[in-house]
């Protein structure tokens, strides 16, 4: 088992899912409450990574990060190297790749908060943002946990985007799934088997925790 690849993957997944909570909450807020008539276009865009082949997404991210794009040039002038084939580039690609897995549970749980509670909060003198912080967020705990865990698990197992954006640099961009692919390519089946099993178990545990927590609407832990 390649521990270097393992910890790199866990680090990537942790960073990505944490960032996605910060990025996903405002997006989900807007998707839930906006009355803009073209909102569905944004919804479709956010959902795109679910259906798009990872290679397609990875290809566009690679182009966008490369030294020919404005973003790539700006980053290069800032740091002296391109984003492509770096860990940072991998984070950006993974953020896009796992975005719907955070935003959709967030938006679903925001939307399921009873509107009359929001009305009550407003008539008690709270602005929409205060209402969001004191009513919607606490009542959406389950959705927030779900979104975090799903994007974590989804990032753990990504392959196509990583390969396109990050390549296969040990300690920098070689994640578990790439490592498994490598081992299979070199006919190292027993090692591939170990790593694959580890990934399977971790993913299963993460999802079990999510579904276990969602079983009771108020519980955030078995101690409650």
């Amino acid at each position: 088992m390649n521990w270097q690849a393992f910890w790199l993957t866990v680090r990537l997944a942790a960073i990505v899912s944490t960032l996605l909570v910060a990025i996903g909450i405002p997006i989900a807020y807007w998707l839930t409450y906006s009355r803009w008539r073209w909102k569905f276009l944004i919804e479709a865009t956010v959902a795109l990574p679910i259906v798009l082949p990872p290679t397609v997404l990875g290809f566009y991210v690679l182009v966008a990060l490369g030294s020919r794009s404005p973003l790539g040039r700006w980053w290069e002038s800032l740091t002296g190297h391109t984003l492509a084939f770096t860990f940072e580039g991998l984070v950006i690609g993974s953020l896009l790749y796992s975005l719907p897995f955070a935003v959709q549970p967030f938006a679903a749980s925001f939307g399921s908060v009873d509107r009359t509670l929001l009305h009550a909060s407003a008539s008690l003198g709270h602005s929409p943002l205060q209402t969001f912080r004191r009513i919607v967020l606490p009542l959406s705990k389950a959705g927030l946990v779900t979104g975090f865990a799903l994007s974590f698990a989804h990032t753990l197992g990504e392959f196509g985007v990583v390969l396109m954006v990050g390549g296969n640099i040990p300690g920098v961009t070689r994640t578990i799934s790439i490592d498994i692919y490598d081992q299979v390519q070199t006919a190292n089946y027993s090692s591939a088997n170990q790593t694959a099993l580890a990934l399977l178990v971790i993913s299963f545990v993460v999802l079990s925790v999510v579904y276990g927590l969602n079983r009771r609407p108020w519980a955030v832990g078995p101690w409650q």
Binding site: T116, H119, S121, A122
Partner: peptide, 12 residues
């Protein structure tokens, strides 16, 4: 005036 600035009590 926005709802939250009206100071009208409403029991739903």
């Amino acid at each position: 005036i926005a709802v939250w600035k009206r100071r009208i009590g409403y029991v739903h």
